[in-house]
């Protein structure tokens, strides 16, 4: 599996100011694979993603992506190598139209991947097509989430970091989102997904990495996690109620 790995993270440590948040995170993700990061609030999932895209500079460890060492590189260089990032807070450019938002994410086509165009993305997210000339700030939360993903896809990423894409979205839209992510996976794009919605994670994920207090404490297939009641109980504390 590591031979084919698109993204390899080893022994990653990061700080906010003087507070150490990550204590040696390690995992891999291959092309066409969905790896889910699970863990409680404040475990460090978002910080892991920010460290990978370069918004937080790792203090220790090594990140290789598509054969290049990207540890501590600047965000725009990492993004240009084909690592896409969709942040938890969506962060669409509120004053720009939907079409303009897509244009900001545009990057040159990448060999081996069918290039994304606005037309293809509008087909994937019909809600966006109807709103292409509206300011992004006026769209509903769900539409903003779709726009954030579409905008990142315009960069033709080989791998996408998706930070809680289902948060705050209606069940119907979460379903559409799941379809879209599966379509991406089918194209051979690697996906690292941070999730709190277990139904969603279980539907999409190939493998799971459980993060606890900034360290990876469990890794394996989602099927194994579903079967391993002890691990579920211990790391996710699910199955206690109901």
């Amino acid at each position: 599996m590591t031979a084919a790995a698109l993204l390899t993270v080893a022994d990653l440590a990061s700080f906010y100011g003087r507070a150490q948040i990550l204590h040696g995170i390690g995992f891999t993700c291959a092309a066409g694979e969905v790896v889910v990061l699970l863990g409680r609030n404040g475990a460090g999932k978002s910080t892991t993603m920010k460290s990978l895209i370069g918004l937080v500079r790792p203090a220790q460890g090594r990140v290789t992506f598509a054969g290049a060492d990207i540890t501590g590189a600047e965000p725009h260089r990492i993004a240009r190598l084909g690592l896409g990032y969709v942040p938890e807070e969506r962060r669409v450019f509120a004053g720009l139209t939907v079409a303009e938002n897509l244009d900001i994410g545009r990057q040159a086509p990448r060999p081996g991947l069918a290039p994304w165009t606005p037309a293809r993305l509008y087909a994937l997210f019909p809600n966006l097509a109807a709103a292409r000339d509206r300011a992004a700030g006026q769209m509903s939360g769900g539409e903003q989430q779709m726009l954030a993903i579409a905008r990142t896809l315009m960069g033709n990423p080989r791998l996408v970091l998706l930070d809680e894409p289902s948060e705050g979205l209606s069940p119907l839209i979460v379903e559409q989102m799941a379809e879209a992510i599966l379509a991406l996976k089918a194209e051979g794009v690697g996906i690292v997904l941070a999730e709190q919605n277990l139904h969603f994670a279980e539907r999409l994920g190939d493998r799971a990495v459980v993060i606890e207090k900034g360290a990876a404490v469990w890794a394996g297939s989602l099927a194994a996690l579903a079967a391993d009641d002890a691990a579920r109980q211990r790391f996710l504390a699910v199955g206690v109620e109901t």
């Binding site: 600047e74 965000p75 725009h76 993004a79 942040p87 962060r91 450019f93 004053g95 244009d103 994410g105």
Partner: peptide
């Protein structure tokens, strides 16, 4: 122009512009 659009986007959120591959 694209430069103008990038500038307006960076006005709102420079980190995000960088994370999309633009040298802000």
């Amino acid at each position: 122009t694209r430069w103008g659009r990038l500038v307006r986007a960076a006005t709102e959120d420079r980190e995000m512009v960088a994370a999309l591959g633009v040298d802000q």
